[in-house]
Design a protein around this nucleic acid. Structure first.
Length: 411
RNA sequence: GCCCCCAUCGACUAGCGGUCCAGGUCACGGCCCUUUCAAGGCCGCAGCACGGGUUCGAAUCCCGUUGGGGGCACCA
């Protein structure tokens, strides 16, 4: 995987990285991370760290040290000078250009696209080394592939047109040409390039929105690849075990946020309760919430089946951590029930969900209210919202004192 | 403008000549369950872009049309 450090890691780039990683892990090979920073003018200072942090969070571990393209500037220059000596390149306006063949074709068997042939006459003599001495991407990249012993280059299909150029260079230096696999791009929901207006696009944004890394990997793997027609949910290990480049589709896919949400819900529900609580705690911490960990852990099971993203937790369970201000309209004439509920709960023992339910149902019976009519005002009074976790469990967690105060206020 | 690529339900896909009047998942609609919201269960809607071939037989192979995308830098 060879990102350029121009900003946050894009989700499309992650998918390309994932395919590389899955392929390497499946084959028992190595997954290498290289930063392509030859364009110093576009480099963003923190990008290198952020990219690595994103990969770490996703669990896409790379082998060996991260390499930087710019570190091999001198090596590239030396090769370019040799190519000039060999007659494969020439000096032009201070830059060094590669001499492309004028006829014939350059071809390769792309693992996802099949045989690709390009007429050499359509390829111009590309710049190897700029007049300021820095190598260009199309020169440094294949040279590094050679030096690093890269056997498989799996990248976005925007590189298809670069491939014949790189192959020519590799041949000119007498090295072995790697296997290429060009994976199609990922589009937004309008079929256009995935961009900000579609929603989250960087790994950091998905993380902030409360998606789990395993969801992202599973979802991304299915964008352009499928093991069969049935399987949808696959663990990291299963993905590694079943992945094959040959089954990567050659047609582009659209990013479906609704399906991502559904899948994240599946993963959240599959978590062990303590693991879910842990994920919640980590997320809350990252987002700057300073909520009581004990209470979060207790609240977690109440919402685990209800939310699809960790970021929904504050809206569902916030009433346990701060005051609420119910909309009077939502109380909908429920003052009498709230008053009766207050009395019923005032000295209830034990103050448990089970006992609370029994007591409140008795109240509704007395007032001749249906559950739907009676519980809703109480819910609004206690949680401040018409939508909440289970009412009785919520009340138990909230505690008697706060519950009575809120019922009083509503009454 | 010049090269190149792609094309199955709204979306992701299975299908690699007969087992497909096309299967799975999301979304959507209905019903059930139910203290709200979810979750869950059941049912449903919906597709081989179009036109020619090849073949006994095509979603699957070939050609064209249309539509979409990518590339053509001293960017990566």
């Amino acid at each position: 995987m060879a990102p350029s450090p121009t900003g946050l890691l894009h989700i499309g780039g992650v998918r390309t990285a994932l395919f590389n990683w899955l392929f390497a892990r499946h084959e028992g090979g190595e997954f290498r991370l290289r930063i392509e920073n030859t364009d110093t003018s576009r480099e963003v200072a923190e990008a290198v760290d952020q990219i690595q942090e994103s990969f770490r969070w996703l669990g896409l571990d790379w082998d060996g040290e991260v390499t930087f393209q710019l570190d091999r500037m001198d090596d590239c220059r030396a090769v370019a000078e040799q190519l000039v000596l060999d007659g494969h390149a020439y000096v032009d306006d201070g830059a060094i250009r590669f001499r492309m063949p004028d006829d014939g074709v350059t071809a390769w068997d792309d693992v996802v696209r099949g045989r690709v042939e390009v007429q050499n006459e359509t390829i111009e003599d590309l710049v190897l080394v700029r007049s300021d001495g820095r190598p260009t991407y199309n020169f440094a990249s294949p040279m590094e592939d050679v030096w690093d012993g890269i056997t498989h280059v799996i990248r976005g299909d925007d590189h298809v047109s670069n491939t014949p150029k790189q192959i020519q260079i590799i041949r000119a230096v007498g090295a072995e040409v790697p296997v290429y696999a060009h994976v199609p791009s990922v589009f937004g929901e309008d079929g256009k390039k995935l961009s900000k207006r579609h929603g989250a696009v960087s790994v950091e944004e998905f993380r902030k929105d409360g998606y789990l890394p395993e969801t992202l990997l599973n979802f991304l793997a299915l964008l352009g690849w499928a093991p069969d027609g049935e399987t949808t949910i696959m663990s990291r290990d299963e993905l590694v075990e079943r992945f094959s480049l040959e089954r990567v589709s050659s047609s582009p896919a659209q990013f479906d946020y609704a399906k991502l949400d559904w899948m994240n819900g599946v993963y959240i529900r599959a978590l062990e309760p303590h693991a879910f609580a842990h994920a919640l705690l980590i997320w809350l911490g990252e987002q700057g919430y300073e909520w009581d960990a004990q209470l979060v852990a207790k609240a977690a099971p109440l919402v685990q089946e209800k939310i699809q993203r960790l970021a929904e937790f504050p809206a569902y369970a916030g009433f346990l951590f701060h005051d609420v201000t119910p909309d009077p309209a939502d109380l909908d004439g429920g003052a009498p029930v709230c008053a009766a509920a207050r009395d019923a709960l005032a000295s209830l023992e034990p103050f448990t969900a089970e006992a609370i339910e029994a007591a409140l149902r008795a109240v509704l019976d007395e007032l001749g209210l249906k559950p739907r009519q009676g519980f809703q005002p109480i819910r609004v009074a206690v949680t401040g919202s018409k939508i909440s976790p289970g009412l009785f469990e919520s009340i138990e967690l909230l505690g008697r004192e706060t519950t009575l105060a809120r019922l009083d206020a509503a009454a």
